[in-house]
Design a protein around this nucleic acid. Sequence first.
RNA 1: GCCCACAUAGCUCAGCAGGUAGAGCACAUCCUUGGUAAGGAUGAGGUCAUCGGUUCAAGUCCGAUUGUGGGCUCCA
Length: 643
Amino acid sequence: MADIQVTINGAVHGLPEGSRVQAAFQAAKVPAKGPQKPLAARFDGELVDLSFSLTKGGELAPVDQSDPAALDILRHSVAHIMAEAVKEIFPEVKVTIGPAIENGFYYDFDKAEPFTPDDLGRIEERMREIVKVAQPFQRQELTALQAVEFFKDRGEDYKVELIEDLVRDQGVRRVSLYRIGDFVDLCRGPHLPDTSWGGSFKLLSVAGAYWRGDEHRPMLQRIYGTAFFNRKDLDEHLHLLEEAKRRDHRRLGRELDLFSVSDEVGGGLIIWHPKGALLRVTLEEFERQEHLRRGYDIVMGPQILRTELWKRSGHWDNYRDNMYFTEIDGQGYGIKPMNCLAHMFIYRSQLRSFRDLPLRFFELGTVQRHEKSGVLHGLTRVRQFTQDDAHLFCTPETLDGEIKGILDFVTDLMGAFGFEFEIELSTRPAKSIGSDEAWNLATTALETALKDKGVPYEINAGDGAFYGPKIDVKLKDALGRRWQCSTIQCDFTLPERFDLTYIDNDGQKKRPVMLHRTIFGSLERFIGILTEHFAGAFPTWLSPEQARVLTVTSRADETAREARARLRKAGLRAEADLRNEKLGYKIREAQMQKVPFMLVLGDKEVENGTVAVRRRGGEDLGVMTLDDFTSLAEAEARPPRWD
RNA sequence: GCCCACAUAGCUCAGCAGGUAGAGCACAUCCUUGGUAAGGAUGAGGUCAUCGGUUCAAGUCCGAUUGUGGGCUCCA
């Protein structure tokens, strides 16, 4: 057999044609033990199995645990192991697909009876046995026709459909199958060398999921799980899940007495309690001031607008199912799901000159959207919410600068909370209005601004709003979870539909461009995210209660009342705990309520005119006068500013 | 909207071979005046989500409705 030249780690090795990757690695003395032990390989950049036979020369690189692709290979392989276990225990089940996902994997099964928690335990047990005996992943290639026959014989209709689609949509002629034990699955691979690698896994939950994500197709049973290369990483991940549960804003919202929802009031409708409302208005006031500073005007529109307007804007055709409608004196009205219409009417209330532009209208606009019942979730998915919404009207010449200004605004505000973010550019969806030309202009404008700013972004094809493309900002919270908040949408269409114009310097009537944008997105959602991000320990400037005076005995009551009054006069949100309880009890409670500062007042302090200051978390700041405390607390008790 | 699970005191939960409810925390009263994460005693508090069915008898079994949770689809 002819030799082929394979380059491994920079060194060229001559190998017989048809050699397996594994043998090549042996020849190149790639470690076969320890963390550098390869589990797969890259051949000229393509991921392949260790059992792959090399039929031509090329560049071969080992893929070990540290490789970015390694975890996906592991998880996908564990999904196969799970499917094998499921098929053994429930032979009547039909298998579908089982990919690796961000934090683990899932596999969808067609099974008449749903899996019970007991079933999960049995499956997990069987998986551990499979892992123990180190079944090899064996790859086999068949023609598409052979594969269809193979799966038809086994009654695996979903696999048959997948192959038929591959043939039809991608012209695929040959497909690969992977076998472990008696379980054979259609799969591109690559996979682990054998099942012994998959030891650190855990099955997490069962859920319904539509076949191919289509709500008109059958509902399948999905099992979620996760897997890591070692026990430690798995435990860390499970701990993170626990931590997320501990930080759940619905739980903290109740414990900190921020808000509630009531089934008597209705799903997805938030009731703000005093502390939550205080937090919210603090956030709102911060934003109002920051908008005024950046040249925005504050405006307010009505809650309902005539149905004709929603028809003209395109909402009736594109968004009607999500809207509430009502009738007054025989006249139809739509409750606003967005704030843009009234802002356009403010624009239209005068003849505008190019000198007036840009106009930036800002509204904390409360909108109603009829969300499907199954999607409601705490503060993050509700039916009535308030957007920090603005519409900017500008000339095509100044559009670029306005988009960049918004990007800076987003960066500042997200930075104020310690959020990092990622950006997506969403392009024209199937259901949309406006000309191709307008869409291209708008998309290019957003893209150019991102490029000029040097901001990395990804394209999210077909996910734009119906009236224009958008930049979506996904912020990352303290646990690394991503949330959609800010959005910047570029719109050439609504100005057209509502005949917005300005007189340009050549005396001609021209069409302004409209930017829709939010920064926090929805106050409700943002507060939910903040709550989880800070685990309820909000920065001092946002904390509903910033300082609490704690008395040691009732002899300090009078002084404590005076102290509270002085703190409030100094602009701090202060309370006093005068209850007949021990200091330890009061500390514990203030700590659980995440009050940033605790001021202890006992006989000594009363006598010396001081307080003993303790920070949330336990740090002892020592004994000081009230004035010293207020000047110490002042900086962090004020909202951030960029001057 | 769809799949599954769940719904008992303000909160977290127990109760189940169907025989008319229990704990801890919180709350109230009293005692305790105690220095940095829970002092003690006593007490009050529930038409067991709603409606209907089976049964001599239903928190417990069955059905429907509403709501919640985990997902799917959708989305700020």
